[in-house]
Design a protein around this nucleic acid. Structure first.
Lengths: 127, 127
DNA sequence: TCAGTACCTTACTTCAAAGTGGGTACTTCC
DNA sequence: GGAAGTACCCACTTTGAAGTAAGGTACTGA
């Protein structure tokens, strides 16, 4: 029960109701990962980020940024100017998370070719 | 186009059609993460793993193990005995992936309390 | 004047992920 | 003899994540 969690309880991702599950899912979410990686480079404006992270819809970008902001990973700086200017950057906590996921991202880019070969072998073996 | 990917192409998670996206999604999938973390400890039998990773259904465990096996992260050792005995363990590639995700998992467990506090502050601020 | 940019929000729809419940085939335990 | 454990697979349904499309405001540049 994420709801009935009490302070001092030990966090355990293997426990179905542990709130750490939810946090992990935010960090590893489809767009969450890519946004954290991007923001690790530098801060971005909304549309800038949208262009950087290929394939995100405005809706998902806004939504994901909101959950990351709520969790305290992303800092949102909205200047009340016209046209609106909003800058997104990582908080300290977010920078820690981003360090982890960008290591994962880089590893993935390096090993994807190997994975592709494994898939071919696997499919071939049972055809 | 994951389909039209050519050997030698540079992998880039920011490119919408890059196959590395798919690999990253397997590794960071809801149950994929937890299974990789578990198998990093030791090898597991199917039901053992099901008990260890709280909340997985048999279906999702079987399905996720299959995709991880196809990608070459997990090795499946099925002994033709009765009752059936199947052992799952990490390949070398899988161990690399698991090292990354379990770092992320441990970080998450440590920082979840902070995230929970951030969420409270956030919700309070706009109510 | 009319498109275009910026940063979203809302409503509607689609589709894949995940849960549910059943079956298999054989064995050991009570 | 019935229940439970083992490692699944299959069909069905539900849920929720994501895509699509449109609206809104205030400006800028052509």
């Amino acid at each position: 029960m994420e709801v009935s969690w009490k302070p001092g309880m030990k966090m355990d991702v293997n426990a179905p109701m542990c709130p750490s599950r939810g946090v992990l899912e935010h960090v590893t979410s489809r767009w969450g990962v890519l946004i954290l990686i991007a923001l690790r480079e530098r801060s971005f404006r909304f549309s800038e980020l949208r262009r950087h992270v290929g394939g995100v819809s405005e809706k998902m970008l806004a939504q994901t940024l909101q959950t990351l902001e709520r969790d305290g990973f992303v800092h949102r700086d909205a200047q009340p100017v016209i046209p609106p200017r909003v800058d997104y950057s990582l908080t300290e906590l977010g920078a820690e998370a981003a360090a982890q996921v960008s290591a994962l991202g880089r590893w993935t880019e390096q090993r994807t070719e190997a994975v592709l070969q494994n898939r071919e072998r696997y499919d071939e073996a049972r055809s």
